[in-house]
Structure formats: structure tokens, C-alpha cells
């Protein structure tokens, strides 16, 4: 269910995030419209990933507030609503797990503590794998995947979350043109289903066919509607 009472999926106000004493984001005000596909574009070190991590609750901001669907950010109530796709380089791909078991992790949030995945979770996992074109790889070990396939597995895991708002950190990193097209297509499908998708991206050229607007006066990155 997506309620239409608020126009914005994510509202960021006066956000300041710092590593140690050095602020990375300073007084950021941002609004992400609901049911849209939005990209955050900027050079390395602009604070794009930091912004996303602060929104999903991985980093504690120094000040400011973040509202998701009009509610103040609270991890417990959020966990089933947001889907986070970290950079694929952030994990060890030699971990003993199959493609299927990694995608199944997407269902863990809904299950909560201690409860085991049920039959419908496995079905959902299969479905998600099919959507990213990886259903033949379900029983493969994750170390046998290429960079693009790793990215697809992470996407499938996010799809299995059935979230309302998706945050994706560099989903196009190390991906060839063909896979990129497939991923963009998938993101557009998500948007057409009424989901909000927010993507961090570093290359302006691949998202050339879209309107853009400056994110915030103090931010070093841009936001664009695709």
C-alpha cells in the first residue's frame, strides 16, 4: 500500500553529516518526490553515498531531520518500507553462500527476528531472480559471478524486499552497457508500479535524457528526474 497523503517519499531538512570533525554534508535540504525515479549525480567525494547512508539510518547525522513518507525516520518502523542496495564492492563475494541464499536475505526484514523463511519467501526469491534474468544461477556460488551479475543479485535481493522506497548506491558501477540498459529498464518498471527509486550515480553521460535540477545550494551533487 502506498498512501498518497504526502507528496514526498523522503524529505531531508538541515541535514549535516560528519566523519570525525570534517562535515561531508552541510545543511542539506532535499525532497524526493513519491513514485519517481530520481538520480543523485556528482563527482567522487561529493557525499552522495553518505546522504543515502544517512537516510537509511546507517550513519548518525550531526543535525537535521529526515522524514520518510511524512514520518520521522525510525529504523524499526522503516525496515519493511525501504530497500537498500549497497555498493557491490562492500561485501566479500567469497562468502559461502549461493545466489539464492543471498537473494533470500531480502525477505529477512519482513520476517523479523528468529523466524525462518517460509515457502512463499522462496517463491518470491525465485521471482526476483527471474526478473533480473538470473534464475539459472540460483544454485551457483556467489564467487563465480561477474561484476554485472553481482549487481543483479543485489538488485534481486532488493526486489525480494518488496519495499516502497529503494535506495541504490552505484548500481551501474562496473556494469557493461547491456546490463545497464536492463537495470534501467527494471528501475523504470519499479517506478511504474508506484515505487520511489533513488539511485546514486557518478556518470552524467549515461543519464543524459533527463531533466535535472540543482539539489541544494550547499550540496556538491545534482538530482535528476529520469
Amino acid at each position: 500500500m502506498i498512501d498518497m497523503t504526502t507528496k514526498y517519499a523522503v524529505e531531508v531538512e538541515d541535514l549535516t553529516v560528519a566523519y570525525d570533525t570534517k562535515p561531508v554534508l552541510w545543511d542539506i535540504d532535499l525532497k524526493f518526490p513519491k513514485g519517481k525515479l530520481t538520480a543523485i549525480v556528482g563527482p567522487n567525494g561529493a557525499g552522495k553515498s553518505t546522504l543515502i547512508k544517512a537516510i537509511v539510518g546507517l550513519l548518525k547525522p550531526v543535525s537535521g531531520s529526515i522524514r520518510i513518507n511524512g514520518e520521522t525516520q525510525d529504523l524499526r518502523s522503516l525496515k519493511t518500507r525501504i530497500g537498500y542496495v549497497p555498493q557491490s564492492s562492500s561485501v566479500d563475494w567469497d562468502f559461502p553462500a549461493t545466489v539464492e541464499s543471498v537473494v533470500l536475505m531480502g525477505c529477512y526484514g519482513k520476517l523479523g527476528w528468529v523466524r525462518r523463511p517460509r515457502k512463499e519467501d522462496y517463491a518470491l526469491t525465485r521471482q526476483a531472480l527471474k526478473k533480473v534474468g538470473m534464475d539459472d544461477y540460483a544454485d551457483r556460488h556467489i564467487s563465480q559471478l561477474s561484476g554485472g551479475q553481482q549487481q543483479r543479485v543485489f538488485l534481486a535481493r532488493a526486489l525480494a524486499q518488496e519495499a516502497e522506497i529503494y535506495f541504490m548506491d552505484e548500481p551501474f558501477k562496473g556494469v557493461d552497457a547491456q546490463t545497464e540498459k536492463a537495470i534501467v529498464q527494471l528501475l523504470k518498471e519499479l517506478r511504474d508500479q508506484g515505487k520511489t527509486v533513488i539511485v546514486v550515480h557518478h556518470d552524467l553521460q549515461t543519464v543524459a535524457d533527463c531533466r535535472w535540477w540543482p539539489a541544494d545550494r550547499s550540496a556538491k551533487f545534482l538530482m535528476m528526474k529520469i
Binding site: L58, L75, P86, S101, M105, Y108, W113, R157
Partner: peptide
């Protein structure tokens, strides 16, 4: 399941509420 997802990807586990 919690130990598995935490060991593989602790950031992701955190966003799931673990």
C-alpha cells in the same frame, strides 16, 4: 538467519532492522 546476513553484509542487516 541473523548471524548469516550480519556476517555477509552488516550494513544491509542494519537496514533490515537487525
Amino acid at each position: 538467519k541473523e548471524f548469516m546476513v550480519f556476517t555477509f553484509d552488516s550494513d544491509f542487516a542494519q537496514t533490515l532492522g537487525f
